[in-house]
């Protein structure tokens, strides 16, 4: 049961949030120019790292805003949270 710091609301219980997978997977600007496998890579393939993971969460039962979390997927330790559009924080796993 994590404690997550929502960049807008502060520290809250994990039960208020929903995880939505890897962050920084930008939608291609010109999908029509991509090959089948480039498009497939965007839609389905993820890095799924064991260790530091940049991921998206949403404060479902709070401000309902999306933000990014940097978490170690082995220890579940949360290093940082930040708003969409902000730079990835430097993390030393």
């Amino acid at each position: 049961m994590l404690i997550i710091t929502c960049p807008w609301c502060g520290q809250r219980d994990q039960s208020e949030f929903t995880a939505h997978g890897e962050a920084h997977v930008a939608r291609p600007e010109h999908p029509e120019q991509l090959t089948e496998s480039q498009w497939g890579d965007y839609v389905f393939f993820r890095s799924n790292p064991k260790g530091v993971h940049h991921e998206r969460w949403v404060h479902t039962h709070g401000c309902r805003r999306w933000f990014n979390v940097v978490r170690d997927t082995v220890t579940d330790h949360i290093f940082a949270t930040y708003r969409p559009g902000e730079r990835k924080p430097e993390i030393k796993g």
């Binding site: 939505h20 930008a26 939608r27 998206r56 949403v58 309902r64 805003r65 999306w66 969409p84 559009g85």
Partner: peptide, 13 residues
């Protein structure tokens, strides 16, 4: 609703 919010907040802010 979540679908719309996701796109609005993360891809097209």
């Amino acid at each position: 609703m979540n679908w719309i919010e996701e796109w609005l907040q993360t891809e097209w802010p």
